[in-house]
Simulated assay, not measured.
Amino acid sequence: MPSREERLSAYAPVGRMALVTGGTQGIGRAVVEELAGLGARQEGLVICWALVFTCARNPADLEMLLGQCRAAGWDVQGIVADVSLAEDRQLLLDAVSEAFQGKLNVLFNNVGTNIRHATVDFTQAEFQRLISVNLESAFALSQLAHPLLKAGGDGIVIFNSSVAGGPTAMGSGSIYGLTKAALNQLAKNLTCEWAAKDNIRAVSVAPWYTATPLAQQVLQDKEYEGKVLERTPMGRIAQPQEVARVVSFLASPAASYVAGCTIPVDGGYSCKGFYM
C-alpha cells in the first residue's frame, strides 16, 4: 500500500520543471500560480514543483508577475517572447534549456487569440494571424521542446484547446474552431509518436467560457452572457483556477496513464444537447 508521502508526491512531485506560455493573464497565469503555489510544506514534506518558466509579450506584465511570485516564495522565471514568431520561440526554448539544464517535464501550450467574423468576412491576414498564434506556435514549440521533454524522462505536452474544437460547432468563428480542433488531433498524433518511444504524453483541455480577458470581450454583453449560462448545466462560467487545477492534475504522475485525449472543462456544456 502506498504511503501518505507517496500518494502526495504523485499529485505534486518535487523536481518537476514546467514551461507555461502566456503566463501573465487568464488561464496561463492561473496555471503558473497553481504549479508554483504547490510549493507548500506539510509536516516537513516539501510537495512542490521545483521550477516554472513562463513568457509574455508585455515586459511590464511579466515583471509584475515575476515580482509577485518572488514575494510569495515561488520559483518562477520568464522572458519576454511572442511565441507566434519563430525567432522568439527559439529564444524561449534556449532560455528554458539553460534554466533547467536541458530538461523539461511539462509544456503547457496556452497562448491563443480570436477574431470573430462570419467566414466570408475573414481576410487572409486575419486567417494567418489565428493560425500563427493558436496552432503554429503550439506545434513548433512542441517540436522544439521534444529533446528537453525526452531528456526529462517523463514528459507531457498539454494544449489549451476549447469546446469550439468540437465535436459540435459553436459561434466563435470558423478559424478559431478549426485551430482548436487541430490541437485536439495533434495531442492524439504526438501521443502515438512519442509516448512509448520517448515517454512523452500529449493531451488537450477544452474549456467553455472562462473568466478571462479574451472571454470578457463577449461576456460583457449581458444578453449574450445569459444565452451562455442557459447552455451551461452548472449555470455559471468557469474561473481560471478551475481549468488550472485540471492542467495541474494532467501534468502530474497521478495522470500518468492519461494520454491522447481531450478533457472538457465546461460545466457540462458539451453534454447538454437539447434538454428542456
Rank of each mutant, 00 (worst) to 15 (best):
33 E>H: 05
235 G>V: 12
71 A>T: 05
151 A>E: 15
10 A>I: 01
267 G>A: 06
180 K>G: 04
11 Y>I: 12
256 S>Q: 04
226 G>A: 12
179 T>M: 06
129 R>C: 11
185 Q>Y: 06
163 V>F: 12
104 L>Y: 12
14 V>C: 05
65 L>D: 06
1 M>R: 13
196 A>S: 10
156 I>A: 04
98 E>H: 10
108 F>Q: 03
249 F>K: 03
263 I>A: 02
138 A>K: 12
98 E>F: 02
223 E>D: 13
37 G>D: 03
201 R>I: 04
50 A>G: 15
111 V>Q: 01
61 D>S: 15
238 A>W: 12
101 Q>F: 09
110 N>P: 10
131 I>T: 05
257 Y>K: 07
232 T>H: 09
197 K>Q: 13
76 V>N: 11
139 F>N: 00
201 R>V: 07
215 A>P: 07
179 T>V: 02
263 I>G: 00
10 A>T: 01
38 L>S: 13
171 G>H: 09
39 G>Q: 07
26 G>M: 10
80 V>G: 00
14 V>F: 14
217 Q>H: 01
227 K>R: 15
138 A>W: 12
229 L>K: 09
144 L>F: 03
21 T>V: 07
184 N>L: 00
129 R>K: 15
23 G>K: 04
100 F>A: 13
66 L>C: 08
203 V>G: 00
240 P>S: 09
9 S>E: 15
35 L>K: 09
212 T>L: 07
28 G>S: 08
275 Y>C: 11
73 G>Q: 10
57 R>L: 03
83 V>T: 13
131 I>M: 14
210 T>L: 06
36 A>N: 05
85 L>W: 02
55 C>R: 02
92 L>G: 09
1 M>L: 04
52 V>N: 09
212 T>C: 02
164 A>S: 15
246 V>T: 15
150 K>W: 08
121 D>Q: 13
225 E>N: 08
198 D>C: 02
141 L>S: 06
10 A>K: 14
245 R>C: 04
156 I>N: 02
262 T>R: 02
112 G>D: 10
177 G>C: 15
71 A>S: 13
16 R>I: 00
19 L>E: 08
147 P>L: 11
165 G>Q: 06
29 R>H: 07
114 N>R: 11
58 N>R: 11
235 G>A: 04
258 V>Y: 02
122 F>G: 00
27 I>Y: 01
124 Q>T: 14
160 N>C: 14
220 Q>L: 09
113 T>W: 01
164 A>W: 14
22 G>H: 05
54 T>F: 11
84 S>I: 03
43 E>C: 09
159 F>P: 00
160 N>H: 12
150 K>L: 07
146 H>P: 00
241 Q>A: 14
64 M>E: 13
66 L>H: 05
22 G>S: 09
189 N>S: 14
201 R>D: 06
118 A>R: 15
242 E>I: 10
